[in-house]
């Protein structure tokens, strides 16, 4: 997220070596070898970094200045400021992790973790401020019939809503497509199985017929399975025809 935190390997290696490289730019080979053996030097070109300037930190001045311009006469109502740790992390708690209480522990590159931390801090602030505000009789919720200009215009909110809806529909569509794909896969499997079974039956039938033709067996049992269907077929068909005929008779 932050553009200024990706230091290059080369720079890093140089930071560690910074002092020695500044004292004399032409180090003896022995020294360099020693440094390499210790792992201070990394392969690659190294260049000298400038020594860090000593930064000013006038603590007394800061305190004095703060005391000068602080307005202690103002009540809390005017300022509405709060200092607080983040609220309890429910997710982390449920997962049995330790609660991340200090802001120093966050990884600033982990967007979700960082934003969650800010969110929890705001939550804690709200939880702390609500009773105080209610005690001071300051409204925290506007009534439904109180209309006033909002920070974002209605157009903007409409746009946001549209975007949210679109996102939702996209997700739904993709899920549907996924389901359909799975169904198709399953359907194909069933089809293949059916075809294979039919072929197997046909093969068995043919072999049985051949056997009969050669006179190896004089049973005609194998035909029964087929005959059954044939028998079952025509009556059904006939009934259907009859029914059709009846209906056709009835019509005129």
């Amino acid at each position: 997220m932050i553009p200024f935190n990706n230091t290059m390997d080369i720079v890093e290696s140089d930071d560690q070596l910074g002092e020695t490289s500044e004292e004399d730019s032409e180090l003896s080979d022995g020294q360099l070898q020693e440094a390499f053996a210790k792992g201070l030097l990394k392969p690659g070109l190294n260049f000298a970094t400038e020594e860090k300037k000593k930064s000013v930190n006038n603590v007394e001045g800061l305190k004095q200045c703060l005391a000068d311009f602080r307005k202690n006469t103002l009540p809390w109502v005017e300022r509405l400021d709060l200092v607080n740790l983040p609220a309890e992390d429910i997710v982390a708690k449920s997962e049995g992790k330790l609660d991340n209480k200090a802001s120093g522990n966050i990884n600033p590159d982990d967007d979700f973790q960082r934003e969650m931390f800010f969110y929890r801090q705001a939550q804690a602030a709200v939880l702390e401020a609500m009773p105080r505000l209610q005690k001071l009789k300051i409204a925290t919720k506007r009534p439904d019939d109180y209309f006033a200009e909002m920070a974002k215009s209605d157009q903007q909110m409409q746009k946001i809503r549209k975007k949210l809806l679109m996102k939702q529909t996209i997700i739904e569509k993709s899920e549907k497509a996924k389901k359909l794909r799975e169904q198709r896969k399953y359907g194909k499997k069933v089809q293949v199985e059916v075809i294979q079974k039919r072929q197997k039956d046909k093969k068995a039938m043919m072999s049985a017929v051949k056997k009969y033709q050669k006179g190896m067996s004089d049973k005609l049992d194998f035909l029964e399975g087929d005959q059954k269907t044939v028998k079952g077929g025509p009556p059904g068909k006939g009934a259907g025809k009859g029914a059709g005929g009846q209906t056709s008779d009835k019509r005129p």
Binding site: L82, N84, A125, E149, A151
Partner: peptide, 10 residues
Amino acid sequence: LKGSRPLLSF
């Protein structure tokens, strides 16, 4: 609301 007062959390 436009112009509503904020809480400041530090």
